[in-house]
Amino acid sequence: MAMAMVAHKSSLGLSVSLWAWICPLEVEQMAAMEMLDEHHSSSSIQQSSGDHNVYKLGSINGHNIVIAGLHLPGNCSAAAVVAQMTMTFPNIRCGVLVGIGGGVPVTTDKGMIRLRHVVASKPTGKHSGAVQYDHGKSIAGHFERTGALPYPPTILLNAAQALEVERARAVDDPVWLNIQRIDTEHPQFRRFRFPGAAKDHLYRPEYRRQRPGLSCESFVVVHRGIIASGELVVKDAELRDCLAEQDGLLCFEMEAAGALSGFPCLVIRGISDYCDSHKNDEWQGYAAAAAAAYARQLFYHISRNWPSGGGSS
């Protein structure tokens, strides 16, 4: 058992860098914990009085990780978690926001986005990698989006590019191998099982569910591009397509705008639904696992000595 990491400002000081890993939902937090190489004690954290977060500490490939969840989904909750986290851990440079999202079934250079795939934020065209699609003003009946979200950290964009090259050359997909870290035979982890490609149903945008409720396994497809963030839960395929067409959106989620307001991060989302009326929880576990597995692999493309001179770019 490795010696417990005492990760707070009084013992580590500002010379030791930490990585933030934010995962809003319980299923996402479980997947994140299974991706750690080592688990460290959090009993010695000297938490700021204004910090109400609960942290899990560990490491991946020698990088110290601070995992935090949200008590409620949404951009406001994400912003609060980030603000409190940086009070207790001022040496956090940047991080990852990892979880599930609703995919837009468009075609990228990796093929059509489907359930079980992963989308990672990447600057494209005029956008930084994420947009707040519900932030703007109405002018003569037309909604005009205002403001821009910060770019992801260059170090993480470079790691994502290096990982893409590694996976293109690999016989065995390292991201898929990371998913296998989760023992789905254990009762509490059965939710992370792969549901099967036969259960990936993509319907025409105009089709509505009438009665609510009613080999690709060994390679994880990762798309990189623009992720949309907002407070609205999109469950309408026509609205999804209308919003996505304007800016080339690949995925919808609810926390990126809030997290990015406090610190630079890369947004990673496993696709668990298509933002349509058929939205359900069947794919949530596997999608969370796929996103966490991708995030884990990024830390194998970042020097353990980074940063030597500070900064998040």
Rank of each mutant, 00 (worst) to 15 (best):
R240W: 02
V66I: 15
H63E: 08
R169I: 02
M1K: 06
M85R: 09
A244V: 07
H223W: 02
H117L: 06
I182V: 07
H278S: 13
V27Y: 02
R304I: 14
P90G: 10
L97E: 03
E38V: 03
S303M: 04
H223R: 05
I268T: 07
L25I: 04
A244G: 13
V131I: 15
V98A: 09
G141M: 05
M254H: 05
G310L: 15
V118G: 13
E231K: 05
R208E: 12
P153A: 12
P123V: 09
I179A: 07
L14H: 04
F189I: 02
M1Q: 07
A256L: 11
A79T: 05
S17M: 11
G147E: 05
L249T: 03
T107H: 01
G50M: 14
I268G: 09
L70N: 14
V171P: 00
G62H: 08
S128N: 04
G50S: 15
G196K: 07
E144Q: 14
I92W: 04
D273H: 07
D200R: 01
D241Q: 08
S272Q: 05
G13H: 01
E28P: 08
H39S: 11
C275L: 02
I226M: 11
R269K: 13
S218V: 11
S11H: 10
V27Q: 03
V96L: 15
A168S: 15
E206P: 04
R116T: 13
L157D: 13
E282M: 12
H63A: 10
K126W: 01
V27E: 03
G213F: 07
F89D: 09
L239K: 13
G270F: 02
N158H: 12
G262W: 00
N280S: 06
V234Q: 10
V165I: 12
V81H: 02
H301K: 09
G213K: 11
H186Y: 03
N178S: 15
S121N: 06
F252P: 05
A78Y: 05
G99P: 02
Y133K: 06
A291Q: 07
